[in-house]
């Protein structure tokens, strides 16, 4: 709008206001602002208020103090936060190395059946959490006995336990199911990055006698570091926002005894309530704000530190 006035003053010199730019931008900007940015900002604002006698009262950071220190909330919050960090670490350490290894194998020149492998390994990524969650729940169930039978094939039957029902194993098991589901993403992105490495570079390496594993480790890996950075931040955002898989496999109470509780399931329970407590929008907003801050700091760390430190090679 400023532009319009400025144009008005110097009508003879300047082009007329270009309405079409506004027309092109307005629908997207309106929906995005009203349905995404405004609710985000409003959620941050709600976390500073509390409901007293049916009217919201400004309480500053008191909700956050409760969340961190008042045992009604803090036990669950710290539990969910540590679980979430553990969930992220398992995903990073298992999903990404295996994804990179699969991509490296897929990008071997003249590999037969490449597109079949690629399509099959990517398939779980597209399945909904309901399918993935319940499917694995059935497979791991001691009632059905598929998992012990399979372990018996390889002589490891003694390893079987009802993993999802044991506090000590449940979170790791759910994290590994999440790895199974999303491994296609790092695989396909790394695969694309490996394909974009020029042929001549590899030929030069072969002339110098750098082949096989050494070639991957010393030449290709440094070249795909930026993509590994992207995968890491995508995993981070996805993991600290995860809800669906826990909800379908372990329910809103993230059992057994909250051992699989993540920030997402905590947000759901705090906001909507469950058997043991009433829902509270303001505490819900407080949990959401913490998730926002965690994700924002992860993204900022990536954009301003990691991404700048990574050496990029012109190819």
């Amino acid at each position: 709008m400023e532009r319009h006035e400025a144009g008005g003053k110097q009508e003879a010199l300047r082009k007329p206001f270009r309405w079409h730019i506004l027309v092109f931008l307005l629908p997207a900007a309106t929906v995005y602002t009203l349905v995404m940015i405004y609710p985000l900002a409003e959620t941050l604002r709600l976390s500073l208020f509390r409901e007293v006698d049916n009217s919201p009262i400004f309480v500053g950071l008191a909700n956050f103090a409760d969340l961190f220190f008042d045992s009604r909330w803090s036990d669950q919050f710290w539990n969910a936060l540590w679980n979430n960090i553990y969930f992220f670490i398992v995903n990073m350490l298992v999903q990404n190395p295996i994804g990179i290894a699969l991509a490296a194998l897929l990008s071997i020149p003249r590999l037969r059946g490449r597109s079949f492998y690629r399509t099959a390994i990517f398939l779980p990524t597209l399945l909904s959490f309901v399918i993935v969650g319940f499917g694995w729940k059935l497979i791991l169930s001691p009632l059905w006995g598929v998992a012990p039978t399979l372990l018996d094939f390889v002589g490891l039957k003694f390893l079987f336990a009802p993993w999802l029902g044991k506090e000590a194993y449940a979170l790791t098991t759910v994290a590994l199911v999440s790895v199974w589901q999303f491994i296609g993403l790092p695989m396909i992105l790394i695969y694309a990055a490996l394909l974009s490495i020029p042929e001549e570079l590899m030929e030069a390496a072969e002339c110098d006698g750098v082949t096989g594993f050494a070639q991957f480790w010393k030449i290709k890996l440094p070249l795909i570091l930026p993509t590994i950075g992207i995968i890491s931040i995508l995993t981070f955002v996805g993991n600290f926002n995860a809800f669906d898989l826990i909800y379908t496999m372990q329910g809103a109470l993230a059992g057994p005894n909250f051992s699989t509780d993540l920030l997402g399931t905590l947000l759901y329970r705090t906001f909507f309530g469950h058997q043991l407590q009433l829902g509270d929008p303001h505490m819900g907003a407080t949990v959401a704000t913490m998730m926002f801050l965690i994700i924002l700091s992860g993204v900022a760390l990536y954009l301003f530190v990691i991404q700048r430190r990574i050496t990029r090679y012109q190819m």
Binding site: P39, V237, N241, A288, I295
Partner: peptide, 20 residues
């Protein structure tokens, strides 16, 4: 401004979205 939403999940605004 429009790219912000690539990284920040819309889910975090749920409390206010439901209200709206």
């Amino acid at each position: 401004y429009l790219a912000l939403g690539i990284m920040i999940p819309i889910r975090l605004g749920t409390v206010a979205i439901l209200q709206m």
